[in-house]
Simulated assay, not measured.
Amino acid sequence: MLDPAPSLDLEVEDISFAQDLRLLAEEARTLAQAELAFQKTRAAYVGAEVRTIALFGTLAAVFVFFALMALVFGLVLSLASVIGPWAATAVGTLALLAIALALGMSARGRVRRMRSALGNDGGGDL
């Protein structure tokens, strides 16, 4: 039913402790060199990708900006026929300023919350 365990007839090479430590150091050096080469390759890849990501992100932000300007221009043109060109310009400007103010206040609140969470009260007010 159960086979008896095979006998372990291992021949142990006669290696001195100093030789064993030399071999271990050599293997550790080889491993460290391979790890360094691997990390350099990773860093080069990440550097190349970060440049591409930054380029695409910048281009996306530029196109979003142009799209928003087209929207504002369309808003002003549409309102100009209803309330006049000066009033339409004022409405568009005030709407954009209100959105900017709301976003700025939200950012300010988040900065304060982050500072208090980190316990870095710096004493200054934003």
Rank of each mutant, 00 (worst) to 15 (best):
S16D: 14
L101Y: 08
L71I: 03
A44N: 11
K40W: 11
R112Y: 04
R108L: 15
V91Q: 10
M69R: 05
G74P: 01
A95H: 04
A100D: 02
E26R: 08
T89P: 02
L103S: 00
S81Q: 11
G122S: 12
L71W: 10
I83C: 07
T30W: 14
F38V: 03
D14V: 09
S81N: 10
F63K: 02
Y45N: 00
T41S: 05
A107Q: 09
E13C: 04
I83P: 00
E13I: 04
E13P: 11
V82M: 12
V46K: 07
N120A: 10
I15S: 08
V50K: 14
M1L: 09
L31K: 01
L55V: 06
V111G: 05
Y45C: 01
M114N: 03
A100H: 02
L55W: 12
T93C: 06
G109Y: 12
S7P: 02
L36G: 06
A28N: 11
Q33R: 13
I53S: 09
A117L: 05
P4G: 05
F17I: 07
G109M: 06
D20C: 13
A54G: 01
R110M: 11
T93M: 10
L21H: 06
G92C: 00
W86L: 11
I15R: 09
V91R: 02
L71K: 01
L24D: 08
L24G: 04
R113E: 14
A102M: 03
F63L: 08
D9G: 00
F73W: 13
V91K: 01
A95C: 06
V82T: 03
V72I: 01
L8D: 15
R115S: 06
G74V: 02
A95D: 04
F38D: 15
L59Q: 11
Q39K: 05
V62D: 11
A5Y: 07
S116G: 02
A88L: 02
E11Y: 10
A90P: 01
S16E: 07
A90N: 00
A54W: 08
S106W: 14
A43W: 06
L21G: 01
M1C: 05
A54Q: 14
G124A: 07
L21F: 10
V50A: 13
K40Q: 15
L75N: 03
V111A: 08
D121K: 06
E26H: 12
